[in-house]
């Protein structure tokens, strides 16, 4: 009985592994075939030296970093405040942070185009800088569920109220409570949220494409529509970026565990 169920488990894992590795292997194999006379990294060379790649990847990286900074500045104080002073508002704030999972990105950006068009009261689509700002805000919105959940969980794991009261009774000011007491203790939670945000933002297509900004996602789509081998190389690169982000989350989560136990 036990051995048959273990066999079944092995079969399930084997099929799963095959399903998930096959596309990666196929993509990698295809990306090596750019030269007719054998496998080479030609496609990668072409992609990496394409000014379009460098420009759009740089743009998206910058957007991701800005998104993470603005997201943290927006979410950490809010989550902290909710836990400390306004627990009654928790359901409302949690509901809002879940909305981006409910409302598809394409609907949100459609709303931006209607609300902030160049003849509206706040013409954020009027010039490039303003549109960049709008795009970043849209990414913060997309990242809200991930950022809020991981930061809120980090704050719950430490006893925020007691820590704050202890710091207050020792004479700490509000900025030093936040920066020296709270922040270091939820650093790993913030970093997990940040890397997840990076993975989501870096290849994002819908928002960037419809707002007409030169991000990595629309570039990928353009290459995909016009080239043969480069898209595969790009897919492998994108997969490695995602993998690196997730790997870093694991590293920080592992480092955080013993710290949390003593807290």
């Amino acid at each position: 009985m036990k051995s048959t169920s273990r066999l079944g488990a092995w079969v399930a894992i084997a099929i799963g592994t095959l399903y998930f590795l096959l596309p990666l292997i196929a993509t990698f194999e295809f990306s090596l075939k750019m030269n007719r006379d054998g496998y080479s990294f030609e496609a990668y060379k072409v992609v990496l030296s394409d000014p379009g790649f460098q420009a759009t990847f740089g743009y998206s990286t910058l957007m991701a970093v800005l998104t993470i900074i603005v997201g943290i500045v927006l979410v950490v104080p809010t989550a902290y405040w909710i836990q400390l002073k306004l627990p009654r508002l928790r359901p409302l704030v949690e509901f809002i942070t879940l909305l981006p999972l409910v409302i598809p990105a394409i609907v949100i950006v459609f709303g931006y185009l209607k609300l902030y068009n160049s003849s509206s009261w706040l013409p954020l689509t009027g010039n490039e800088r303003a549109t960049d700002f709008l795009l970043m805000c849209s990414y913060v919105t997309l990242a809200l569920p991930y950022l809020y959940r991981s930061i809120d969980a980090g704050l719950r794991a430490i006893d925020v109220r007691t820590l704050t009261e202890a710091a207050e009774s020792l004479g700490a000011s509000w900025p030093s409570i936040l920066l020296q007491v709270i922040f270091p203790n939820v650093k790993s939670a913030i970093l997990s949220g940040a890397f997840l945000t990076f993975a989501v933002v870096i290849g994002e297509f819908t928002m960037a494409s419809l707002l007409g900004r030169p991000a990595f996602g629309p570039y990928l789509q353009l290459i995909g529509a016009n080239r043969a081998y480069e898209p595969s190389a790009l897919a492998i690169i994108a997969f490695m970026v995602t993998w690196a982000s997730m790997g870093l989350i694991q590293v920080f989560a592992r480092n955080a565990r013993p710290a949390r136990k003593t807290a």
């Binding site: 998930f20 993509t27 997840l196 290849g203 995909g224 898209p231 595969s232 993998w243 694991q250």
Partner: peptide, 27 residues
């Protein structure tokens, strides 16, 4: 760990990967 990666590996690169696998010229 792999599920964390794959669940976020959506969008355009994923479509490239499946074209390379099950497209007309896919592996």
């Amino acid at each position: 760990t792999f599920s964390g990666v794959a669940s976020n590996f959506a969008g355009i690169p994923l479509s490239f990967a499946f074209l390379s696998t099950l497209g007309r010229m896919g592996l």
